[in-house]
Every structure is written in C-alpha cells, then in structure tokens.
Design a protein around this nucleic acid. Sequence first.
DNA 1: CAGGAAATGATTGACGTCTGTCAAAACTGC
DNA 2: GCAGTTTTGACAGACGTCAATCATTTCCTG
Lengths: 357, 357
Amino acid sequence: MRKPTLHDVARAAGVSYATADRVLNARGGVAAKSEARVRAAIEALGYTRDVHAANLSRRRLYRFRFLLPDGDHSFFRALRAAVLAEAGARAGDRVRITLSEVPAFDAEALAEALERVEPEACDGLAIVASGSARVSAAIASLRAGGVAVVTLVSDAPGAARDAYVGIDNLVAGRTAGRLMRLGHTGRSGLVLPVVGARAAQDHAERLAGLEQSLAGAPGLALLPVAEAFDSPSRMRALVGAALAREPGISGIYSMGAGNRGLVEALRALGRPRPLVVLHELVPHAREALEAGLVDAVIDQKPVQEVAAALDILRALADGRPAPAGRARITPAIYLPENLPACPAGEEEDNDMMGGAA
Amino acid sequence: MRKPTLHDVARAAGVSYATADRVLNARGGVAAKSEARVRAAIEALGYTRDVHAANLSRRRLYRFRFLLPDGDHSFFRALRAAVLAEAGARAGDRVRITLSEVPAFDAEALAEALERVEPEACDGLAIVASGSARVSAAIASLRAGGVAVVTLVSDAPGAARDAYVGIDNLVAGRTAGRLMRLGHTGRSGLVLPVVGARAAQDHAERLAGLEQSLAGAPGLALLPVAEAFDSPSRMRALVGAALAREPGISGIYSMGAGNRGLVEALRALGRPRPLVVLHELVPHAREALEAGLVDAVIDQKPVQEVAAALDILRALADGRPAPAGRARITPAIYLPENLPACPAGEEEDNDMMGGAA
DNA sequence: CAGGAAATGATTGACGTCTGTCAAAACTGC
DNA sequence: GCAGTTTTGACAGACGTCAATCATTTCCTG
C-alpha cells in the first residue's frame, strides 16, 4: 500500500524507467503507443510525482521578490511583517524571499525598481502597483524575461500582470454600505465619506461601492466626499469640522488611512457618536474598536494576501496554472467581538530542528 | 549563496557530518562542547533542515483519519467536502487522509469507531466530538498509543485531546448580539433566539454570548429560547408561530441548523421581516442572504478548520508543538455583499499565518 | 599507564526524482 | 538486406537527509 513510484509506473506499463520519465517530463522521442501505455499506467496506479524528491533533485530554489511601499503606515508595516513571517515559514520550502521597499505612491520610483530587477536572478515578483506606462512596460519586460509578476493590494490598471491578489474594493465599499444601512434600520441618516485621495483608484472604487449600496436606502444621504490624504492630523481637523458643521451626521466611512485622527475627533465629540466604519485592522483601529469608538473594521487580511501571492507565484514558477480563487480575497468584517486573538503581524516561530513544513 | 546543508554546518563547526547529524537528530552521545559548536554553526549559517530531503529519506507517510458525522446537514457535507479537497491537495505532500462517517450526535457510535482505530496504522485523528466517558477513554487510549487527536467544530468536554480546532462559540454569540444591536441603533426591539437543542454545548455557548451582548443594550429584550432540533419543518412551524404570536419580534438569531424552514417562514411573512442572523454559510443560507431574506451569516469557515486541523496533526506527528493560534478560528461575518466568490467548498485561507505546503 | 567507556570520524545505502550518456533494438525507405 | 533514423533500455551521478555500522581517537578511572 506504498505510494507508487515512477518505477512502478514503468513496470506496469511494460517500459523502462527512462521511457516513463520521458513521458512524464515531456522530453520527447517516445512512440505514441508507449506514451499511451505510460499514461494509462499513471492513471491506473494513481501515480503522483513526489514533488519533494523532484524539487530536491532539481535543486530548485524559488527566488521571489516583494517590492512594497515604505513609510510607517501601519498597514504597509503589517504587510511587510507578513512577508517576513512567510519568508521565515517557507524557508524550509526552497523559497527564498527578498523584501525591498520603494517610495510609497511613486510610480516612477516603482518603475525604476522594477527595471533594476534581473530576470535571471528572480522567479517571481509581487508589487503594490501604482499605474503608469513605465511601470506597465517594466512589468511586460520582466514577464517576457520569464519572471512571474503579481500585483498585491493595489492593481496596475493597464499592466498585463499574471494575477492581482487583493480584495475587490467595490465589494468592500458595498459591504461598508450594508453596515451603514444595518445601523440605520428604521431611521434616516447622513453619511460622511472620507477618502485618502480622490485620485486613488482603490478609494474611488470603495466610494462607488458605498454609493451603490446607499442608493438602495432611501433614508440615507451622502455628504460630499472629504479628502484626508491619509494624514491623522488632517483627518482630525476635517472630521472635527464636519461634525461641528453638520450635527446630523450619523455615519462615517473612512476608506483610507490616518484614522488615528478620526478616532481623536470622535473622542472629543460631546454627543453620541455616529456609526463608524474603517478599513484595515491595524493596531490603532483595533484599539478603537475595543474601546467602542468605532463600530466595524473592514480588513483585507494582509497575511492571507501574502500567502496567496506566494502560492500563486510558486504555481506560476512551476509552470502550473495559478490556483483558482486564491487571488480574490474576501474582505473580513471585524466587530469588537470577533477580533482575532493576536494583534496584526503575528510572529511565527520557525523551528529549525523541527520536521515537516 | 546556496542554502547551507548539514555538511556546511559540520564543516563550520569543525566536526564530522556524523556528529552534526547526531546533534540535529538528538541521537545522543555527543560531548556538550561539540554540541554547542554545532548549534552555534547552525545559528550562524542560518541552517534549516531540508524537510523535503528529510521526509524523502525517512519515507515518511502521514496517515490521518477524520471521523465526521454522517447525514445530509449542509454543514457537515461542506466539512466532508473540505476534507476530501484537502486530501487531494496534500496527496503530493506525503499525507494520506481517510474519511469515515459516524452517526451524528451519537456518542456511543463515535466511541465505537474510536475503539476500532488501530494506533499502529494511524498517525493522527480528527473528530467532531460528542462528549461521553467512553469517548474520553477511547481518546486517552489512542493518545497513549501515539495517535494525535484533535477535536473539530465541537469539543469533547472532559477529554484530553491534543487540540480543539474551531470557533469560540461564546464569541460567535456575542458577535451575533453586536449585529443585533447594530440593527437596533436608536430603537428598541425583541429578539427571538433559536437553538438546535438546548442540550448542545455549542448552542448553549452561543446563547450565552448573545445574552452577554444584549445585556449591554437596554432597549433589547430576549424572548424565551425556541428549540428547533435542526429540522427545517419544525423550524418553520416554530418561527411561524412565534412571529404570529409576537408581532413585535424585530430580530431572530438562529444558532443551529434547519434554517431552510426559517427562511420559508420569513418568506411567508406579510410585513417587514425582522433582522435575521444565522450560522454557517451553506448553500441555503447563501441564497437567503443574496435574496435579502437574511441579514448576516456567521461562518466558522470549515475549509480553514480542516486545513488548521491537518497542520496541527502534522506538527504533532512530527513531534513539534502545535502551531500557536492556528486552532482558534475567528468566525467570519458574511453580509450579502462580501460573500466569497465560490460556493462553499472552495479554498479560503486563514487569518493568522500562512501554511507552507 | 592500562583498560574501558565515551565521543567522534568515515563511510554506506537508501529515499524518488532529474538529467545525461551510450549502446542496443526497432523501425523506416529503398 | 543495408544504411539511416527513431525509439528504447540500462546505468550513473547528483540532490540533502536519515540511519546504521565500524574503526578510530579521546577521555576518565583506578
């Protein structure tokens, strides 16, 4: 009841090991009749190649590279931590991950970094994309050089990448809208939407989702969009002013970063606060949720995104099709009650002596 | 820039390969001084054992067995499907999974099945536990025989299993309570709690969570608990009657199965329906959510649970400690907007850490 | 310093696959 | 039946680790 080996297949097919191997690895030079026999034997025995042995023999090393935005935004910090954690966890898996930081929101810098990547020394690449013609060209050139390219968190509009791993921001926006509607059951309200930048594509999509959802709720009106540029201080000023100007605000949906300022403004508010929905379960958001200053956080699960990106890169590097459905991350909704046990950016203890991965 | 091998470690430590191997695999008979040198070299080189080569050499085969409730409850069907899917996905990973069904909610039958398991032919076991002394004894005996035992979805109260993989049902209940409160912002209400069976521990915990959460909401009152015994027809009758008797019902939290009946009762209702929260994103629940007959579904992510159970079983079989945090699943909240793309059964990943394959 | 125990080194054959080489065998066309 | 091509078989050396043997060297004890 042992797992069948290629030797078993060869014997069952009545051919030599070499021939079975030629079929399995498509080396060519095999008569159609023999090939059919081998394939039948593979089928009959339920043979699967032992990937461990194969990779061992091939001395395959997967060299992946992540180009992530620098800066101290909690979300990107969490993303980088997730990459490092996965790098540790997969060290035993013939996967070598290099993490470099590029200036955030800077398409030119990203393009430069992409152009510096040597296709011979890299099997796969994951980037948080900013769209630009030069970026698209760099991606195309890398792909032509045999490098798998995956966009993470934010997609490059025109670029022909292998896959986009991240949430559907339209869905995220609609989800926020649904939470708003839920919190306004039986009453009308006024919702303040706050983006990081109107120009950011993901924020625009979230906003569109929100609008779509609220279009189905007659009692809910939307205020003009506020732009906080992901800065806590601007956010604080902006939200403070809006709350003072419009006492009827019953909901705030913040689509970007800088929510520390939003929480401060809420804390300073003398009356019952509006319903608040944020993005990304970073430490501050978590605290605000636990403190009851925020109602819900929509999270794109960076750890899961990194894992999915790596699985896809690995599949592509092996010449397999990317695992279906792995790329599309469904945004998680966190309420104060269902927070995951450990703060974002969990540490994984990678044992060096331990056995299997 | 090659990955260091144990040979490299031995050379760096100034000992022979055999000695390095003795340290690595704790074979004993190594002087403390040499051991320290080897460990230092491991540290310095960042050596990690090549798990593929190791398992290849060991010709290790992980034989895991799942004992899951039979019957046609959608949830268990999804759970079984998840096991089969993982079995396929890990076939190349030296993991052989056997799935057997045992009569649902029958501690005696489970105990019998457990007693039939031969410890020599099984490295790990995952069961949906029903608590009983005989079950506990069988688990203890298996563990004594070197079999790792994990409870899945439902824990065995008194039993000394290696781990419980599943959600915290108290948390799930509190989460439902939060959704109820969110949907009752600015108004009072009357909530009908429905369990499968009052005796079921997980349902009792969910109910306790709900009560805890609603205790903090002055305007929300709880009706006496209804018991539907996981049967659609009973559920339909019971909820229909309650809705007729108590026109003021503004929320329903169903903690068990049989929700098809609940949805039918709602569909038959002539007036605006109450806020409805269910458990488990099975096909019916999904449809009801999409049709707007249900507001939220709390899901325990069976696919993720199975993956976590396997990771833990594997770690235990290797003699490693079970990966921390992997066992506790955070319940997911699904609204009509953030449903995963694929019907239940597809790959969905975990929150905490990436599993290397 | 002998005798014995402990520690170490050297070596070997798996494990299942990959990749290459070389020669033998089976075909093809004429 | 011959030369030329295609197909096949046999074999060997990796890959990194495991597990075992056997011969040495070093250390401790009396």
